[in-house]
């Protein structure tokens, strides 16, 4: 109990307290302490990486060995990971190397395409989200439409009312982005800030302990 639970809680409290105080003490010692913490955090993170890689290979090797449904795709993932490691070992990882080409012409291309795929699905999502069932939903719809028109040249082209000195769609979209959108985001950021402040305090004081696990 003492070694498994109380010592970790003590470490959390001491480290949390010291790091919080460090911020308010502008001295060389404080700066060195902060730099040391960053170095240590990176070294601990290195071993976190080991856990991640172990988990990846364990899951996929398990699927292949058990011949679970779609195990062939797990095998492809393993082979591709090994291919990248071999490519880096043989040809380095500089620009123009096999390693970088493999990354840019496969993974980077696939990732960009997957994100662009969302352009199609976001349209159907928009249909469901934008059905103006209330005046507030109408506000959401109008803001989105103005924002989309404001980002493309046609937005300014159809703004015939600018002849009377009224702002164009582009200007309106900019105003929406900089004013009501900013106000909404600021309210959210303040809420998130207060939330993370409380969560930090709960962790340091040992009230929040879920990171210790169930045992």
């Amino acid at each position: 109990m003492f070694w498994k639970k109380k010592v970790p809680l003590l470490i959390v409290f001491i480290m949390g307290f010291v790091m919080a105080v460090q911020y308010f003490v502008p001295s060389d010692f404080s700066k060195k302490f902060y730099d040391t913490y960053i170095d240590w955090a990176i070294v601990i993170g290195i071993f976190g990486g080991v856990l991640g890689f172990f988990s990846f290979f364990r899951v996929h090797i398990h699927k292949v060995s058990k011949q679970a449904p779609n195990w062939q795709f797990s095998l492809i993932s393993i082979l591709c990971a090994l291919l990248m490691i071999i490519a880096a070992l043989l040809g380095g990882r500089g620009s123009g190397s096999l390693f970088m080409k493999l990354f840019l012409y496969t993974s980077a291309a696939i990732n960009a395409t997957v994100f662009s795929l969302l352009a199609f699905y976001i349209s159907s999502a928009a249909y469901r989200a934008f059905r103006a069932r209330s005046t507030q939903a109408l506000a959401l719809l109008l803001a989105a439409v103005i924002m989309m028109l404001g980002r493309v040249p046609i937005g300014d082209s159809i703004s015939f009312w600018t002849a009377w000195g009224w702002p164009s769609i582009n200007e309106i979209s900019q105003w929406i982005l900089n004013v009501p959108n900013l106000a909404a985001k600021r309210a959210i950021i303040l809420g998130v800030g207060l939330g993370s402040l409380l969560m930090s305090l709960k962790i340091i004081l040992g009230i929040e302990r879920t990171y210790l696990g169930s045992e």
């Binding site: 492809i76 393993i78 591709c80 990971a81 990248m84 990882r93 496969t106 696939i110 990732n111 997957v114």
Partner: peptide
């Protein structure tokens, strides 16, 4: 999908 997962993991390891 599995290619990008594998390539991404290999890139991450290196």
């Amino acid at each position: 999908e599995s290619v990008t997962v594998g390539i991404g993991m290999g890139f991450g390891v290196v």
